[in-house]
Structure formats: C-alpha cells, structure tokens
Computed example of a mutant assay.
Amino acid sequence: MSRIDDSRDFLPCRIAVLTVSDSRSLDEDRSGDTLVDRLTDAGHHLAAREIVTDERAEIADQLRRWCADPEVDVILTTGGTGLTGRDVTVEAHRDVYEKEIEAFGTVFTHVSLAKIGTSAVQSRTCGGVAQGTYLFALPGSPSACRDAWDEILRWQLDYRHRPCNFVEIMPRLDEHLRRK
C-alpha cells in the first residue's frame, strides 16, 4: 500500500544510472532510458549516466566514485543481475555496500512473481547503502526496470510516502561517520 501525504513537500533526489553491458551503447540502452524517463518524470534529477562492461572491478569502481560524489544520492544499475558467468553486478554492489537492504530483493521478487511467475527466481536484484548513498542493482530488461521503479523505488524515493521512505532517513545514513 502506498500513501502520499500531500502536506509534505516533494524532495527530489539526485540519481545516477549505470548500465552494465558488454554490448550496448547509450544509443541502444533501453533499460537505462526507461529508468531516466521514470526518475525525471517523477521530479528527480539525473545526476550522471554511464555504461560499463560486465567487469566486477570496473562496476565497483564506478559505484565508489559516485558514492563519494556529494551530488549523487542514489545509484541505479541495470544489467548483470542474472545467473550467467558474466553477471557480476551483484558481487560488485556487495563489494561496495556498508549495509544491504535485504528486503529490496525480496519485495522485487514478490512483484516479479506476480508478473512473470517462477521465472522471478532468476534475478538477483539487490539494494544497499554506502557512504550515505543508496544503491540498487536492477535486471537488464526495460520491463524489470519499470517494475522496480513503479512498484518500489517510485514510492520509497518520495519523501511524501507514508508511513516511511528512504528519503526521510537519508540525512542519517552516514551518521556513524560523524560520531566522535
């Protein structure tokens, strides 16, 4: 159930989109386009967009660069969450996470199960936090990106969403770094 509290102002996030692919360019990146369209239509800002190959170190390095950038609040990756040998996005994300958001993958699986049945078991979608930045690894299909945005991220990245959302706790994500 998603509820918007109209007494609260919308607070836009700065979101970076990273496509993981050995074969796509920006011109043919339908999944990345889907995410960019949805996040900007919702009122968020595109902070950056890149494509990297399915190389664990390269993916993790880009995630770390964006986590260190104060102009990036959220990172969405698309691609490389499957089961093949070249699918290493999840491992790269976990190399970077300080905390994993286990329920993100669970909720995504629930959403996918309703749409694609037991084929949902083939996705290793995950989410986490590092350096005060949210990171979400999404499958490489435009349909899966739509599902993740429309059913989960759209709501959790909206400060007005009740009873709680990711945006309202964003200022506290790196509080452990500020403690004396």
Score class of each variant (00 low, 15 high):
Gln122Ser: 09
Ser119Thr: 06
Leu35Trp: 04
Thr106Ile: 15
Ile51Asp: 03
Ile75Val: 15
Gly127Glu: 07
Asp61Val: 12
Ile152Asn: 00
Ile51Phe: 00
Gly127Trp: 06
His44Cys: 06
Val96Ile: 07
Arg38Asp: 13
Pro70Lys: 15
Thr89Leu: 02
Asp33Trp: 10
Gln62Ser: 14
Glu100Pro: 01
Ala144Ser: 12
Phe136Arg: 02
Arg146Asn: 11
Leu138Trp: 06
Pro142Trp: 06
Val111Gln: 05
Gly128Val: 01
Gly140Glu: 06
Asp54Tyr: 02
Val129Cys: 05
Thr89Lys: 02
Arg38Glu: 13
Tyr97Phe: 15
Arg160Thr: 08
Lys99Ser: 11
Glu58Ala: 09
Val52Gln: 05
Arg160Pro: 06
Ser21Thr: 13
Gly85Arg: 11
Gly80Lys: 10
Gly85Ser: 11
Arg94Cys: 00
Asp73Ala: 01
Ile59Lys: 06
Ser123Trp: 02
Thr133Cys: 07
Thr34Val: 14
Asp33Leu: 11
Pro139Leu: 11
Ala130Val: 05
Thr118Val: 11
Gly82Ala: 10
Asp158Leu: 08
Gly127Met: 04
Trp155Ile: 08
Ala103Tyr: 07
Gly79Ile: 11
Ile51Cys: 05
Arg30Met: 12
Ser141Phe: 01
Arg24Gly: 13
Ser119Ala: 14
Gly82Phe: 01
Asp147Lys: 02
His93Cys: 03
Ile101Phe: 09
Arg86Cys: 07
Ile75Thr: 01
Asp22Ala: 08
Gly127Val: 01
Cys67Phe: 05
Gly80Asp: 10
Asp87Lys: 09
Tyr159His: 15
Asp27Gln: 13
Pro139Ala: 13
Asp73Trp: 11
Arg38Gln: 15
Val129Arg: 02
Pro142Gly: 12
Trp149Asp: 03
Arg30Ser: 15
Ala42Trp: 01
Asp69Ser: 14
Thr77Trp: 05
